[in-house]
């Protein structure tokens, strides 16, 4: 039974809307992040006002408990979040995809062993793995946090890559490639990677969001980027003590975090639709 693909027409408008909204949110964070490289309203370490000032024209998001400008800190937080998310997902993607493909191609017992190992690793929360990695290294800094999160994400990516690759390997076009004399490395490059990418990329975007949150959590726990790096997680932690007297200090980094994560997910959804040749045309 086949349903004509034209039925997708109805939802396509909604899809392009998610792409636009995602692009707008992520683009905003990206612009802000790039801007902080050349300009911020105040110096992030400058005591620019009184302590815990309410929002005003001078300090649009108020000031923190030391009197530093909050908007400046949140803008820098965008840069840190995007850096950590991109780098951690890149590490997780490369490591995880390699591992997943190895498992998909491995002989039965090796595949079973790898699958079991991945399942055990996935049972540990990403954050916990990341914390262990940070604890095992010399000290908390930005690159340790990135590496830790990347390692923590890789089993999740690996498991998905394994399942997706196994499904692709069952397809007749893989057998056709083999009988056409295509080598295994070329089959991976030409057929497997492009066909697992749609499924994988959506998951990677999801992982990006999780990485941003996990970085905030690490920083919140004091295991992320040390001061004066204004990670949103550290801002949240610092605002904890004054959350009732000056809630703005906790709300703004929270909004920044949520808007970026939602934006990335919308973007991923929209991109998936565009990347699929079977859905983008007609």
């Amino acid at each position: 039974m086949t349903i004509p693909a034209d039925t997708a027409i109805l939802s396509r408008k909604a899809r392009s809307w998610t792409l636009v909204a995602g692009l707008a949110l992520v683009g905003l964070h990206l612009v802000v992040a790039l801007l902080t490289l050349v300009w911020t309203p105040f110096d992030p370490t400058e005591l620019a006002g009184r302590r815990l000032e309410a929002p005003s024209l001078l300090h649009l998001a108020g000031t923190d408990r030391l009197g530093r400008d909050l908007l400046t800190q949140i803008m820098i937080g965008s840069r840190i979040a995007l850096t950590v998310g991109t780098a951690a997902v890149a590490i997780g993607a490369v490591l995880g995809t390699t591992l997943g493909l190895l498992a998909a191609f491995a002989s039965n017992w090796l595949d079973d062993a790898l699958a079991a190992a991945l399942d055990i690793l996935i049972a540990f929360p990403t954050l916990l793995i990341a914390m262990l990695v940070v604890a095992a290294s010399d000290g908390a800094n930005l690159s340790t946090a990135i590496l830790a999160l990347g390692l923590g994400l890789s089993p999740i990516v690996a498991r998905l890559a394994r399942i997706l690759a196994k499904r692709v390997l069952l397809m007749d076009y893989i057998t056709a490639a083999r009988t056409s004399g295509t080598s295994w490395p070329a089959i991976v490059r030409i057929h497997v990677l492009p066909n697992i990418w749609p499924g994988l990329s959506v998951n990677l975007a999801l992982q990006f969001g999780l990485a941003v949150i996990a970085e905030a959590s690490l920083s919140y726990l004091g295991l992320g980027a040390p001061p004066p790096n204004a990670s949103w997680g550290r801002l949240l932690q610092e605002a904890q003590g004054t959350v009732f007297s000056a809630p703005i200090g906790a709300i703004t980094p929270g909004i920044a975090l949520v808007s970026l994560v939602i934006g990335i997910n919308l973007l991923a959804d929209g991109l998936r639709e565009r990347n699929d040749p079977a859905r983008s045309e007609r």
Binding site: M1, I3, A8, I9, L10
Partner: peptide, 20 residues
């Protein structure tokens, strides 16, 4: 294929997908 025969079956049992 494309004759609408399977869609007829779905229509009869009220199982037409959304959008149809």
């Amino acid at each position: 294929s494309g004759s609408g025969k399977s869609l007829t079956a779905l229509a009869v049992s009220g199982l037409l997908p959304r959008g149809l």
